[in-house]
Computed example of a mutant assay.
Amino acid sequence: MSADQDQNQRQIRCLVAKVGLDGHDRGAHVIARAFRDAGFEVVYSGLHRSPDEIVQATVQEDVDVLGISILSGAHNTLVPKVVEGLKEYDAFEDTLVLVGGIIPDDDRDDLKEMGVAEVFGPGTPMSETIDFVRENVSGKR
């Protein structure tokens, strides 16, 4: 098997991250389990991580997908800091950034304009999220 084939065959690596003071992590655990069940390799950040800690973990773990779970309402402050940090490490172009949580429609558009690939709200079928990752990670690799 060539190196290119091996790269295309490796498991999708995901970091499920809780940034800021948001202590609600049920959704993060649910999506992490769904990703594992779908055959993805998953790293969970734990609660109360700073944007810089999330950036460092994304870079060090060499993940394909960064899923930020946020319910605190601080998405307009924290997500841009994560995106900017990834850009500083030249890791943004290679990382599919997703946001999950209760995000107002206007804010969803703003997040997407800054480069977030998709925003998933409560009740999104797991299959939809998994299919989105599979369809969009291949373009990032």
Score class of each variant (00 low, 15 high):
Val97Tyr: 08
Leu71Pro: 12
Asp105Val: 13
Asn136Leu: 09
His24Gly: 12
Asp4Glu: 04
Asp90Phe: 00
His29Gly: 11
Arg36Gln: 04
Ile54Pro: 03
Leu15Ile: 03
Thr124Cys: 13
Gly85Trp: 00
Ile31Val: 15
Leu47Thr: 08
Ala34Met: 12
Gln56Tyr: 01
Thr129His: 11
Met1Arg: 00
Ser138Gly: 00
Gly121Met: 07
Gly27Val: 14
Leu47Trp: 04
Val30Thr: 14
Ile102Phe: 01
Ser127Cys: 04
Gly27His: 14
Gly101Ile: 05
Val79Tyr: 13
Ala57Ser: 05
His75Leu: 14
Phe40Pro: 08
Ser50Trp: 06
Asp52Tyr: 02
Thr95Phe: 04
Lys140His: 10
Asp6Pro: 02
Glu135Arg: 12
Val133Leu: 07
Leu96Gly: 02
Leu111Tyr: 11
Val99Lys: 01
Ser138Ala: 15
Gly100Cys: 07
Pro122Ala: 00
Lys140Pro: 06
Ser2Asn: 11
Val55Met: 07
Ala3Gln: 02
Glu128Ser: 11
Phe40Ile: 03
Val55Cys: 06
Ala17Cys: 02
Glu88Cys: 02
Asp90Arg: 10
Cys14Val: 09
Ser72Phe: 05
Gly100Trp: 00
Ile102Ala: 09
Ser2Arg: 06
Lys18Arg: 07
Phe132Arg: 10
Asp22His: 12
Ala28Gly: 04
Ser69Leu: 09
Gly67Met: 06
Arg36Val: 10
Ser45Gly: 12
Lys87Cys: 06
Ala74Gly: 13
Ala57Val: 09
Gly67Ile: 09
Met1Phe: 01
Val82Arg: 14
